[in-house]
Nucleic acid binder design. Sequence first.
DNA 1: AGAAAAAGGTGGTCTGACCACTGTGACCCT
DNA 2: AGGGTCACAGTGGTCAGACCACCTTTTTCT
Lengths: 222, 222
Amino acid sequence: MMNKVNSLHSQSKVYVGIVHQLREMISKDGLKQGDKIPSERELSERLNVGRSSVREALRALELLGLIETRRGEGTFLRDFRDHHLIDLLGMFILQDHKAQQDVKCTKTMIEKEALRTIFCQNLDVSALISKVAEDNDSLTWREIFEGVILVSNNYLSHRIWNVLNDYETLIIGEKKITPEIKEKLLTLLQGLENQDKESVQTAYKQICEIGDQELTNSNIFL
Amino acid sequence: MMNKVNSLHSQSKVYVGIVHQLREMISKDGLKQGDKIPSERELSERLNVGRSSVREALRALELLGLIETRRGEGTFLRDFRDHHLIDLLGMFILQDHKAQQDVKCTKTMIEKEALRTIFCQNLDVSALISKVAEDNDSLTWREIFEGVILVSNNYLSHRIWNVLNDYETLIIGEKKITPEIKEKLLTLLQGLENQDKESVQTAYKQICEIGDQELTNSNIFL
DNA sequence: AGAAAAAGGTGGTCTGACCACTGTGACCCT
DNA sequence: AGGGTCACAGTGGTCAGACCACCTTTTTCT
């Protein structure tokens, strides 16, 4: 008898096939984060494969942070934002300076594009402005730009940005919001609201410069 | 008797400990890409763990693209830049939210950024020009823009673009290079070479419009 | 009814077995 | 000596079964 996994992905190893089966299963059954997936033994039976192969697939996904296993309970889907790709990759490619630079460029690209979209479509940033305007010291860099990108309404970019930001944070630590940056941020956001292209551009550029400056001071890897 | 892996990472699961051991082993022995790492059985013995646990760790790293296994030969380190970060993200993040619009926007963003980089740094695109200029009917859309992005020298963006392009191709099929587009492409590339910002922008915009038009004709999902 | 004990399910790990594939080296024939 | 063949050892790929530790649920006892 032909087993399901191999019949669909005949050239792959079993565990890779299982990863694919799992993905299909998740989307077919509409599983969301926090939902429980079948037990290892049940998967092993349903897919006609050994439990060790199921575990190889599951452990791989777990290392990536896509699933979470709780002994005695079962295996559950995690919030995809929580994946550990970053830690893993960082662990292995930390020494690659070019990679770091690529991360920074790509992240900046997404931020700029988000600002551009907001500007061109004149999207509402008033919520962000009041958030920044609040005298809140616990405000993080991530919250701000995550907000910006969310407003620009590109889910995919948001995901990618999150990954890149995690990576950067891992390497150089959390960026602080200084009063100086806060001021520039307000200028930027108000520029977006008032359709003042010039001030948006210069403010963003200044923010980046300040960030870079801080980066070179704190990056122990450079 | 206490085993090595658990003595160092007592709270972790065994396979996670093995991943760490492996990383240390790699840096201590100065292993480079292409080098062979010990066999599963030897690792199992050296670390005092079961072979299945070793395999769970190895399979996870393989799924990430950090190592490569060849049956009958052994396990080898891969080029770390070949990691599958993006592919995996694509597989699990793009699955349910089939936000085609997001894919298109993000892909366009990368292309524009690449063009901008090439323009600002005045990078050499003569190779691309001659490639397009050749009367070669087998020229694909992918080849062109992959070339553009490669010239811009952002590996990470390149990887992301590849995934997005694959995804788009899967949904709407391969884009054809019509003579009209070919002409615009040449205009664009020559604009890059001659530092003619205006013609680059308008040519790219026109290319996108033509592409969109074709897209709405052929997209069976819309 | 409430608490304690037992049972069943789940992931975590190890062992041993078998298969398919690869490289190597001994062996044989010319 | 040269060239080819073949058996063997090593490697990853997979499976089955056995424990263990832990959690939840059910049953049992007080």
